[in-house]
Amino acid sequence: MSQVKIFADSTCDLPREWLQKYDIGLIPLYVTFGDQTFKDGVDITTPQLYAKVSETGSLPKTAAPSPADFIQAFSPSIEAGREIVYISLSSELSSTYQNAVIAADEFPEGKVTVIDSLNLSTGIGLQVMKAVKAAEQGKTPGEIAEIIARVKSRVETEFVIDSLDYLYKGGRCSGMQNLVGSLLKIRPVIKVIDGKMTPAYKVRGKREKALEQMLSNALEQRDHMDNDLIFVTHSLAEEDALELKRILEEKTDAREVAVSDAGCVISSHCGAKTIGILYVKKE
């Protein structure tokens, strides 16, 4: 067991079996429908989230873990004599990072290192896996923080949004945009830039066209990819994800191309059939 335990939150979208295999601590965000509050991935799954959206006709609110949640999660590892490195959802998207910093101040100095991923979904997960590898090699929290500081600006995160409905319901585009987008079958592509979700471009026409464009963008970078790991992350789009995985395995030198499911918080902002390709560029 490493002296340093790596933590993430539920938005990292890492496969559940990886969390167990690599001893990664996970802190859930919250999803609220009316007066009902659920822990992401603990009390509610992504298919259940979509069923509730259909039932209620509205999107849930999402909320960060409280400082008390972090203290409760971190305490057993600290009491066991371990140090913690926690990699958070982008501070540009949530107060999760700030709440973790507040919690870290409740422990002796240096026991908890909090890192802002400036990313989301497996854009965080890629950084978490780099941290896990460093911890296994005996790196200190400070050394791990330095490694992640060099990695996070090189994470490429690109998602095809299948429908504007969730962006519209969540207040991220106007009703007219939603109507026009639906009529023209416009599929927005989102990138993460400086920690923020940024519309990169739009693809008009069939879903397959948008997926082909995203795949083409990734393959153009194949010579610049860190070949450790590529993620294909999706929200109820497993068939497409497996096909993208097959092509990426065939056309890149990646040691591993992994498929992962988007959790409830990510899905509530992007909607069903959202799919992304995420990787790290070489230094």
Rank of each mutant, 00 (worst) to 15 (best):
V4T: 04
I6V: 04
T11G: 08
T11H: 08
T11C: 12
L14Y: 09
R16M: 10
W18P: 00
W18I: 03
L19N: 07
Q20F: 00
Q20T: 06
K21E: 11
K21F: 00
I24W: 05
G25F: 15
Y30F: 14
V31H: 07
F33W: 09
G34R: 15
D35W: 03
K39P: 02
D40A: 06
G41W: 01
G41H: 03
G41A: 08
D43V: 08
I44V: 04
I44S: 02
I44W: 01
T45W: 03
T46N: 01
P47V: 01
Q48P: 05
A51Y: 07
A51G: 08
A51F: 07
A51I: 07
K52V: 04
S54N: 14
E55A: 13
T62C: 09
A68Y: 10
F70Q: 01
I71P: 00
F74T: 05
S75R: 15
P76C: 10
A80G: 07
G81C: 11
R82L: 13
E83T: 13
L89H: 05
S90M: 02
S94I: 10
S95A: 15
Y97H: 14
V101C: 13
A103I: 06
A104N: 12
E106M: 11
F107E: 06
G110I: 13
V112N: 04
T113M: 11
V114S: 02
S117T: 06
N119I: 02
G123R: 02
I124T: 00
I124R: 00
I124S: 00
V132E: 02
A135I: 06
Q137N: 11
G138C: 05
T140P: 07
G142E: 14
E143K: 15
I144Q: 13
E146Y: 07
I148W: 02
S153T: 12
R154Q: 12
E156V: 14
T157M: 13
I161L: 12
S163P: 06
D165G: 01
Y166A: 00
Y166Q: 03
L167Q: 02
R172S: 04
M176I: 08
N178R: 13
G181V: 06
L183H: 08
K185C: 02
R187Y: 07
R187D: 03
P188T: 02
P188L: 02
V189N: 00
I190V: 15
K191F: 01
I193F: 10
M197D: 01
T198P: 03
T198C: 08
P199N: 13
A200K: 15
V203F: 09
R204I: 11
K206D: 11
K206H: 11
M214T: 11
L215W: 11
N217G: 08
E220G: 10
E220L: 14
E220N: 13
Q221M: 12
R222I: 09
M225K: 04
M225V: 09
D228Y: 12
D228E: 14
I230G: 04
I230A: 03
I230N: 01
V232L: 13
H234S: 00
L236H: 02
L236I: 05
L236S: 05
E238T: 11
E239F: 04
E239G: 05
D240C: 00
L242K: 15
L242F: 12
E243H: 13
L244I: 09
L244R: 05
R246P: 00
I247F: 10
E249W: 06
E249H: 06
V257T: 07
S260Q: 01
S268Y: 08
K273W: 05
T274M: 13
I275F: 10
Y279D: 04
E283S: 10
E283W: 10
